[in-house]
Amino acid sequence: MTEHSTERPHDTAAAPMGAPRLGRQGLVHVALLTLTLLAPLVAHLLGEAYYVNLATRIVLVAMAGVGLNLALGHGGMISFGHAAYFGVGGYVAGISAYHAFDGSLLMGLPGSDDMLVIWAVALLACGLLALAIGAVSLRTSGVYFIMITLAFAQMVYYFANSWPSYGGQDGLPIYLRNGLPLIDSQDPLSFFLVCFALLLAAMAITARLMGSRFGAALTMARLNETRLATAGISPYPIRLTAFVISAMITGLAGALYADLNGFVSPAMLSWHFSGELMVIVILGGVGRLFGPLAGAIVYVLMETLLGGLTEYWLFFLGLVLLGVVLFARQGVIGWLAGGTPHG
């Protein structure tokens, strides 16, 4: 595994990649980032706030996918419950803003409408939740792991659904987007740039992690557990750590997503969203650093364009997805850039 040093797109740590077609893959990565950054800038200049927000949505869905990709793609842990972290992150933003809005306390603590505080709490909450869920779930493997992560996510979903204090099924509106020091978070473009920077950070962290000895151990745990064990390393703590980090990234995306929509509801926690997130990772290319971004672009644009043409767009998404799973395993990035996934 080699750190790739040329054609480093912007200031992010680039993907560790399979050597032969590195030039083309790097080009695709640069193109993806440029596109993601330029489209909303153009939209902004044209005064189309809607398209800036659409780009922000792509970026946040991609960030959630980056989180899942760490567990699913790099770690081989097929989590069917990442919506739980996305939703919990969202609820942290919603609940905190709710208490800040009416000045009430939550277990003796005041709410906050400062995004920095919200992010920290969301990271902490999702980390702890994933630690608990992961500790139990990682005792199982295979189908049991898929099912148990799904069941835990359903547990959180039903809890949010029927707990009346924060709106239950109705969800919780955030009347005014939470604020940031020095930056006007209300402005669509500024908020986009914040989200974009955080997406880059999440991708950089993933790349660094996978380039380190930890990443090597995680890859080994996925490919050949026995060999890892003979090296004297227990896979359980490695996997658990990756699972927790993965959940934290997805949770942060959830907190930002709630602020983007000004609304958080149990829909963010539903198993459909867990499925969609998996679809995004697969569409882009499993275990590829830029896969989630490519997947999110394809998914959200499909939703917007196809959804504008027919209200049954999910039918066609189903067909596309089926085709990708059966015949095009490497996803968009693999198709555009070739090369092998999993660094």
Partner: peptide
């Protein structure tokens, strides 16, 4: 820029 991304950007612009 490859075909797909160019098409995507183009669509974004026209709808805008």
């Amino acid at each position: 820029m490859n075909k797909l991304t160019r098409a995507g950007l183009g669509l974004l612009m026209t709808t805008a």
